[in-house]
Design a protein around this nucleic acid. Structure first.
Lengths: 106, 106
DNA sequence: CTTTCGTGCAACCATTTGGTTGCGGGTCGT
DNA sequence: ACGACCCGCAACCAAATGGTTGCACGAAAG
C-alpha cells in the first residue's frame, strides 16, 4: 500500500500548492513553477519528485524541458481509505453521528 | 483551514494504524493502544496528541485514565480538498465524493 | 561553433520528527 | 495508609526533511 507516500506527499504545504498549480495548468515544468513559488527551482524539483513517487504526477521529457502532468488516481485511493476508517466509526457511533453531524448542511 | 495538520497527522504509518484502531474500538486509552503497538506508551501518547491537534480524535479524562474517541470530521474536509483539486479532470473522484457525502449527510 | 536555457546531481546545513528513558504526580483498590 | 496503576512532562538522540548553493551535461538558438 502506498498510501503512506500519498499522505506524506500531501503533508507539506508547499507541495500541496505545487500540486494544485500543476492540476490547474494541466501540465508544467519545474522552472515555470519555480517562477511562481517562494523557493528555488531545485526545491521545486525535489517536491515534484516526491509527488511523482506518490503517483500524483507523471514526468515526461520533451526536448530540454521536463513536463509534469497530474495523475490523480492515488487521491481516489486515499479517499477510499478515509471512507473505510470513517465507516468503522459509523458502525460504533452511527446513532450519535446523526445528531452531531447535522450541522454539516446539504 | 488546517488541512496541513490533517495530512501531516495521516502521513505517519504508525499514526494511521493508531487512528484506525481508535476508530475500530470506538474509544481507547494510550496504555491499551500501546499494548498492541510496536512502540512505547509515550510514543503512542505523542501520536495521539498529534491526532488531537488535527482534530481527528478527542481526549477526555476519566478518573486516572484518558480516553480518546475518534472525531473524523476533518476527514471530510480533506476529501473535499482532494476533490476540489482533482475533480476537474477526473470524474471518478466526483463519484467517490458523492458516495462519501451520502454517508455523512442525510 | 558558441552561447544560452532547462535539468539533474551532489554536497551541505538547520530544523523537525519519531523514538527512547527517567521521573513525579494524581487516582484507584486493598 | 500504602502500593499499584495510568498518565504527562522533560531531556535526549538518531534519522528524516526542506532548503540552499555549485556544477556539469544535453538541447535549442544565434
Amino acid at each position: 500500500m502506498s498510501s503512506d507516500a500519498v499522505f506524506s506527499a500531501l503533508a507539506d504545504g508547499t507541495r500541496r500548492s505545487l500540486f494544485e498549480e500543476v492540476s490547474r495548468r494541466g501540465a508544467a515544468t519545474p522552472t515555470e513553477l519555480a517562477a511562481a513559488a517562494p523557493v528555488t527551482r531545485q526545491a521545486v524539483t525535489k517536491h515534484l519528485q516526491a509527488l511523482e513517487g506518490a503517483g500524483l504526477v507523471a514526468a515526461s521529457r520533451e526536448g530540454r524541458e521536463t513536463r509534469y502532468r497530474p495523475t490523480p488516481r492515488p487521491l481516489g485511493d486515499a479517499i477510499e481509505w478515509m471512507v473505510a476508517v470513517g465507516g468503522e466509526w459509523d458502525e460504533r457511533l452511527g446513532a450519535l453521528e446523526r445528531s452531531a453531524a447535522r450541522r454539516r448542511g446539504r
